[in-house]
């Protein structure tokens, strides 16, 4: 238990007011009560102005707030266009998957951070896509809303697809993320509850812990690094190189 207590937890897909019913502040407050260290407020509409965490920074002390976008498109050219346009504006880019073409386009794009809900239509990924995810550093998202919101038929199909996705990501060493995709504060779950739901999807306890703390921290660190240009290219201080 000690290692769980020491970890920092992040939920990288939380929706708020222009799209869904709770204000950003309310979501932050509820997540803070549940012992999260930070959340990413994702908006669905790219024209929304993004939440400014500096407004009430005194109250939300010791809590990290990031802006994200969840891209929902039907064709590949629109996806690439939106990714290129938004890469400088937001911290984290998620692509809402489900369709096979969109899944593939998102996993082969290095600028995308997370592929959300790849199994939402009951179809699992395959070995080619899992390998592409590992090569391009795109994390595969395991969403708990399949377990909480759906029932019976659709829940069984989605869960079966998720179990295969866990096996594939484990085999090809791609990274997994557990997110809640909360539409109101009633959809948020505590970190240990998220881990328990992740363990129903076939993860081990260590993998679930990793998917909730270490992988999100790595994504945040990668994206907030100003010196990083793209995968493998980074601006390094000349002094450091000489020494």
């Amino acid at each position: 238990m000690g290692i769980i207590k020491r970890s920092k937890f992040f939920d990288l897909n939380v929706h708020s007011l222009p799209d869904y019913a709770d204000s950003p502040g309310r979501m932050v407050l509820e997540a803070k009560e549940m012992a999260y260290s930070g959340i990413c407020l994702t908006s669905l509409n790219p024209s929304n102005s993004f939440y400014d965490p500096n407004i009430s920074s005194s109250f939300y002390k010791n809590f990290e707030i990031y802006n994200g976008i969840e891209i929902q498109v039907n064709n590949i050219s629109a996806l690439n266009k939106q990714v290129n346009r938004l890469i400088d504006k937001v911290d984290i880019i998620l692509v809402s998957g489900g369709h096979e073409k969109i899944n593939r386009a998102a996993l082969e794009n290095q600028k995308v951070d997370i592929l959300a809900r790849p199994a939402s239509r009951g179809k699992p990924l395959n070995h080619v896509l899992a390998k592409a995810a590992a090569d391009n550093g795109v994390a595969i998202d395991f969403n708990i809303d399949a377990l909480t919101m759906h029932a019976r038929g659709s829940r069984i199909n989605t869960l079966a697809a998720m179990r295969l996705n866990v096996r594939l990501t484990r085999k090809y060493d791609a990274s997994m993320v557990l997110t809640s995709s909360a539409r109101s504060h009633y959809d948020l779950r505590g970190p240990r509850e998220m881990m328990a739901l992740g363990m129903l999807m076939g993860m081990t306890q260590d993998e679930a812990l990793c998917a909730l703390s270490i992988v999100p921290q790595a994504i945040i660190k990668r994206n907030t690094n100003k010196n990083r240009i793209m995968k493998g290219v980074e601006i390094v201080d000349m002094v450091e190189v000489v020494q």
Binding site: H15, L17, D19, Y20, A21, D22, S23, G25, R26, L29, S56, F59, R183, S184, H185, Y186, D187
Partner: peptide, 17 residues
């Protein structure tokens, strides 16, 4: 329709909003 989308009865806000 915002409430319908997230399936809640009320809008949740904080005092700071």
């Amino acid at each position: 329709e915002i409430l319908d989308r997230s399936n809640t009865g009320y809008i949740g806000i904080t005092v700071f909003d």
